[in-house]
Amino acid sequence: MNEAGTTLSSVPAPVPARAGAGLKALHYQEIIERQPEIGWFEVHPENYMGRGGAPLRYLERIRQDYPLSLHSVGTSLGSHRELDRQHLKQLKSLVDRFQPGLVSEHLSWSHGYEWFTHDLLPLIYNRESLQRVIANVQQVQETLQRPILIENPSSYLQFRHSDIPEQEFLVETAKRSGAGLLLDINNVYVSCRNHGWDIEAYLAAIPGELVGEIHLAGHTVQAVEGVELLIDDHGSPVCRAVWELYRGTLERMGPIPTLIEWDSNIPPLNQLEAEVRYAGQYLESLGEVQHAAAE
C-alpha cells in the first residue's frame, strides 16, 4: 500500500487482513466476557467524543483484546466549508489514546451551514470539489500525522454537472493526497445499481495497491415508480451478488482487512460473528489459492 503502508505498520496494533466487525454498544458486555473470534473492531470516533464515562471505558477495555479501526463520519471531507479544527483535535486525541491500526472517512459531506446533517450527503464530482477534497484530506492527514483511507459512498442521486466518474475521483484523491482507499463493495453495488453504472468497470478502475480496507454490508431494495432503488441501511446479511464481487476483488487484490457493518436490525453477537466467519472463509481460501499457486 504505497507510502502509507510503512507508516501504518509502525503503529502498535495493525489491523490484520482478517474479517472484523463494527462494534455496537449492544454487544460490549458479551465481547468482553466471551472474546469472540472476530479479527478486529471498527467504531465511529464521533460516538466516543464524550468527555468521559462508560463508552470510553468499554472501548478501552475492548481495545486491550482487539485491533481497532476508527471510521469517522464527521469531518465532512467534501464540504465547501473549512474543516473544523476542534473536531480534528478531538479525532487526533482519540487516535493518540486508542492507537488504531486504521483511520478512515467517507467521500461525502455533512456540514453545509452552522448545523450538521449527520448523514453522508452526495458530492458533485468536478474539478472544484476534487481540489477541495484533496486539500481537506491533506489537512486531516497533517493533523493526525498519518495517512487515512477514503471510502466510496453509497448514493441515491447524481448531479447534472458532475464530470468525473466516482471511481476516478477516488483514485485521483488518493494519489494526490497520499491517502489510501476503503473500498465498500456493497456501496459500489448500491450506487452502480442506483445510477446504472457498470459495476465491473468501477471495480476494475480501483488499483489494488491503494486499498487498505474493504467494507461489506446488507442493503434493502425499494421500488419507486417501477424502478428499484437500493438503500444502504446495513440491516441484513450481505447479499449473494456482493459476496461474488468480494471474491473477485480479493482474487485480484490479495488479502485485505474486511469489515462487516451491521447497524440497523442489529443481530445477536453470534449471528454477526457467523457473518464475520463467512467473510473470513473467503480470505482464508484466498490464502490457500495463493499458497497453491506459489507451489
Binding site: 460490549y28 464521533e46 460516538n47 463508552p55 468499554y58 448523514d119 453509497s154 438503500i231
Partner: peptide
Amino acid sequence: KEKCYGIAKAGQNDCKAGPGT
C-alpha cells in the same frame, strides 16, 4: 472489573441510511 462499565447506551452517529423511500 468485568462488570463495572455501566449501561451501554447506543452510539448515535452512523454511516447507514435511514428508511429510504
